Simulated scan of single mutants.
Amino acid sequence: MTDLLTLSGVHTHIGRYHILHGVDFAIPEGQTTMLLGRNGAGKTTTLRTIMGLWPASAGSITLAGQRIEKIATPEIARLGVGYVPESMAVFSDLTVKENLVLAARDGAPDTARLEWIFGFFPALKKFWLSRAGALSGGQKQMLSIARAIVEPRQLLLIDEPTKGLAPAIIGALIDCFAELKRRGATILLVEQNFHAAREIGDAVLVMDNGAIVHRGGMADLANDIPLQERLLGLSLEAHQ
């Protein structure tokens, strides 16, 4: 299996704080890899460093054979990387339609792909001409994800998409991610919801103190409660 993304010895400093301490991992093409860890372990910093929002101070990041740790965020996005931050990246003063038009490569989303997205997130079609700022938290999360997938991406970086959402919306997100994977997308996903992690993940990476401390199959970790407690401080069931 070919690795799409590789991090080797990546360090990240934010001001005087040393957040990532030699992060090493590889993400296989066409798989969904869960990035788990306690709060403050460095998960969000890892995604932001890959995306170029916080520059790596040492080490290399390779995407499909190309080094990207020194290039700007817009160029990384043009290479086919979609990013969904925990903060729900939507333009509140623009409509749902305008948000998706801005995210489309040529300013005109593909109609068939939009209908595919609406199948998972029908609220976006219902509120097509409404301001994004007037949407509920769950609907804003739908829009944030829709912005990232309105064009096919070779890699999706998604940070805690189910946080604070109702079970019905979480179910729609799980279905969407499963279909993205079926279509060949590669996903690196930070998630605290055990049900979502177990349903979505193929592989798992666990971080602690800015480094990877475990890597393996998601199913193996899901079935090993003592390992969960050792790595995460509690069982994954407690994260629901």
Rank of each mutant, 00 (worst) to 15 (best):
E179P: 02
K125P: 00
L47N: 03
V213A: 08
A172N: 09
F121I: 01
I149Q: 01
F120W: 03
A77R: 07
D3F: 15
T45I: 04
W128Q: 05
D106Q: 06
L156W: 01
L135D: 11
L53Y: 01
E179R: 14
H11M: 09
L47C: 03
M51K: 05
T12H: 10
L231A: 10
V206L: 14
F91W: 03
T111G: 13
F127N: 14
I117H: 04
V150D: 12
H214N: 09
G80L: 11
R131K: 11
A211L: 06
E29R: 11
I27R: 04
I174A: 13
N39S: 08
E69W: 10
W116S: 11
L94V: 00
N99M: 11
S92M: 14
I76Y: 10
I145K: 13
W128E: 02
I170A: 06
A219L: 10
L155V: 02
V23H: 11
A146N: 08
T49A: 14
P28G: 15
K163I: 04
T12P: 09
S144Y: 05
T33I: 07
R78P: 02
I117F: 10
Q240P: 03
Q139N: 08
A172Y: 02
R198V: 02
A132F: 06
R153L: 07
I19P: 03
T2S: 14
A166M: 09
A166R: 08
L155H: 03
A72H: 02
I212C: 07
M88A: 10
I117V: 13
Y83N: 12
T32L: 15
I76K: 11
I27M: 09
K163V: 01
L5D: 03
L53P: 00
S8R: 11
S87Q: 13
R38F: 01
Q240H: 15
V81P: 04
D202V: 01
I158N: 04
M51R: 08
V150N: 08
F127I: 00
F194N: 07
L189K: 01
I169R: 01
P226F: 07
D3T: 04
W116H: 14
R230G: 02
L236S: 08
H11P: 04
R16H: 15
A123E: 14
G30N: 03
G133A: 07
P28H: 12
T186Y: 08
P28D: 14
T44C: 05
A58K: 05
T73P: 06
V23I: 10
L155D: 06
I158Y: 05
D175G: 05
W54T: 11
D3E: 14
V23F: 13
A219Q: 15
E86W: 07
T44V: 02
G233P: 02
S130R: 15
L36V: 00
E98I: 05
F120V: 00
D220M: 08
L20Q: 12
G119D: 12
F177A: 10
V96G: 14
M218S: 13
I117D: 05
L5F: 06
Y83P: 03
L205C: 10
T44S: 15
C176D: 06
V204P: 00
P167H: 12
E229S: 04
S235Y: 07
A104M: 11
D24I: 04
A238K: 10
S235H: 06
T186K: 09
G65H: 05
P109R: 13
